[in-house]
Simulated assay, not measured.
Amino acid sequence: MTELREPLDAPNDQQNPNTSIDTPAGVSHTAAAPGSRRERRESESDIVPSVPRPTTVVTRSATSVIAAPRASAPVAKATVKTAPPRRLKMPTRRNVAGGVVMTFALGLIATMALPAYAFGNGTAGFDANNSADLAGAAQSITVDDNAAALAVSRDAYTAPTSEELQAARDAAAAAVAATEASTAAASAASAEAPAAGTFAVNPPSGAYSGQAVVDYAEQFVGVVPYSAGATPEAGFGCDGLTQYVFGQFGIYLPRIVGNQAAMGIRVSPEDAQPGDLVVWPMYHIGIYDGAGGVIDSPDWGRMVEHRALWGSYYFVRIV
């Protein structure tokens, strides 16, 4: 480093900074400066110390060089796959069965919880000691003075005596014996009846009239047995008798009691005449004799009968 010293006897004039102490007086620095830029820097380095600059060493490895892709190399295109739409799955038997079981379990739990909820009024839990407290506590009730006391009475029913029971048994046995006797008599009469195809029927007498119908039906009483038929040879049902008798006068009646009753008009008992139909609703029918009796075919094992009216009935007139 060059040290600058100023003599003590030097004048106070300002020294030109471009003037070096090594430069002779009167010689300009500009004139003495070298002509090239490099020479000027070297001359200045003699005056101003140079500051060393940090040197950066750049090291490149062989892998740091990335080769550029060739222009001829094909560029792969990305393929985007679209997911298929989701389909709603139908419920299976297993899912349905599980739902039914879960619903039943919830209903069972709710059913078991309702009595306890009602007992606790919805706010308190069940206390097993409540029953003991209620049983041991004294209870009282207040009755209004205006309340009327109910009279306690017993009905008049008494158990039958042994004599009354025996009398009832005897009466039942007598009824059974009478029925058996009647059935036996009907069977005997049926055996004596003429064979099928040999029954002689008298034709109707005169023009149609109620009394003529009664007179014509009278010839079958005690002769033709009861059956499901509608001819004298085959036997008569109740509706078979009326169908056959009225058919001989040119009047057609269908089978079945209700159907025959619907063929005429209903008349009052005071206006009933011979030849009207007597109808026991839904089960029996006969021919009214005009004097409180009926000609009908009653039941199995019996013949056509002429007997008194009974029970609940009404009259129908065929017009």
Results as ranks from 00 to 15, higher is better:
A167V: 04
Y288W: 01
A32E: 04
L106V: 14
I109Y: 03
G229S: 03
P49Q: 10
Q166Y: 05
Q211G: 05
A171N: 01
V100M: 09
P52S: 13
I47D: 05
N121W: 08
I285H: 01
D127L: 00
Q243E: 00
L134E: 14
G290Y: 07
G240R: 00
A97L: 13
S187I: 15
A178G: 06
D13G: 10
A196E: 10
A10M: 11
A168D: 04
D145F: 01
V279I: 09
R37G: 12
D155H: 12
V101C: 09
V278M: 00
T158R: 06
A149S: 11
T198G: 03
L150G: 14
A113G: 04
A308C: 07
I287Y: 00
T23M: 12
A173R: 07
M102D: 11
A181F: 01
A71M: 15
A138M: 08
R266F: 09
Y226H: 06
A159P: 05
A168P: 02
I256H: 12
T158D: 07
D276R: 02
E39N: 04
V48E: 15
A207D: 12
A62T: 08
S43D: 10
G250K: 01
S312D: 07
G237T: 05
V152D: 15
T63L: 13
G136I: 06
W300E: 13
S131M: 11
E164I: 00
P298G: 00
V224D: 02
S187P: 05
A168S: 07
A124S: 12
L8I: 09
G292E: 03
A181E: 13
A178S: 09
D22Y: 08
R53I: 11
P269M: 01
K89M: 08
R87A: 10
E44H: 12
M303Q: 06
A73T: 12
S140H: 13
A10T: 08
N12H: 13
S297I: 00
R255N: 04
A200D: 08
L277E: 01
A159W: 04
A149H: 09
G107Q: 09
V214L: 02
A261L: 00
D296V: 04
A172S: 10
V257A: 06
A261C: 05
M1K: 06
N129M: 10
I285A: 02
P298W: 00
G275P: 01
S312G: 07
A128I: 12
A135P: 02
G125H: 07
Y208F: 12
K81E: 13
D46H: 07
V201Y: 00
D276L: 00
P54E: 11
G237Q: 03
D299I: 11
Q139A: 14
T2M: 09
A185L: 10
F119R: 09
P85L: 08
P52G: 11
I287G: 01
G229Q: 02
P84W: 06
V214I: 03
A32P: 02
S50D: 13
